[in-house]
Amino acid sequence: MSLWDYANPRKFLAVTTPLLPWLAAASALLVGSSLIWGFFFTPEAERFGSTVKIIYLHVPAALMAINAWLMMLVASLIWLVRRHHVSALAAKAAAPVGVTMTLIALATGAIWGQPTWGTWWVWDPRLTSFLILFLFYLGYIALWEAIEDPDTAADLTSVLCMVGSVFAILSRYAVRFWNQGLHQGTSVPVATGGRTVADVYFIPLAIGMVGFGVLFVWLVLLRTGSEIRARRTRALLARARRMPPVPLATEREA
């Protein structure tokens, strides 16, 4: 059986619905154990004190904020090439999850920044890039909301996602260029994804990253299911509402 068979909405629902409780339980277990381990059973860092523990939320959320956009990009491409409705709906479903992850990353970054740098916000390249990513998410979601016809919305948001991805990458490099111009040599002590931190911190962090990944998959599958059902409702209503057949005036002529 081809992988594309799962792009059939009913098949998709039949396969994913039983998985949802397991995914929910797995993400709760992984995220919960990562946070408890990280918060209560890791030593405090010398330089930052207990504030460093926010990385157990900050880093996985930031990771998923980017991955969600990548997933939307892939789903958009699949929609444009293969016209599988589930793909477009999955991209739509992922956007609010992605924007929430971005917000968590930004908020935890600010909360972490306050004791570390003495200010809630600095225009650090990394933080700024996430702020721009947040704006891209907002535009993408707003375009989905603005267009009534679902296929038109899927096409236009997919094009926006592709163009937006290119500009998001450009923005990231532009922001680096810009920021170095302002504060030469300032570097912000952010853990770069885990490898620079010691193992005692890394193991719970890795569990947290896997946990956020599972959480993301669960939420996206759940939301895609809702979108499929909404679309089904829409299709049924449209069919019910259509005009009664017009009586024939003449025979069919060929």
Binding site: A235, L236, R239, P245
Partner: peptide
């Protein structure tokens, strides 16, 4: 006369996969 060609209830639409 296009009335002779009005799509019937069973005609497939774009949303067929969802029904």
């Amino acid at each position: 006369d296009l009335r002779a060609y009005v799509a019937t209830e069973t005609a497939t639409g774009r949303d067929e996969a969802f029904l």
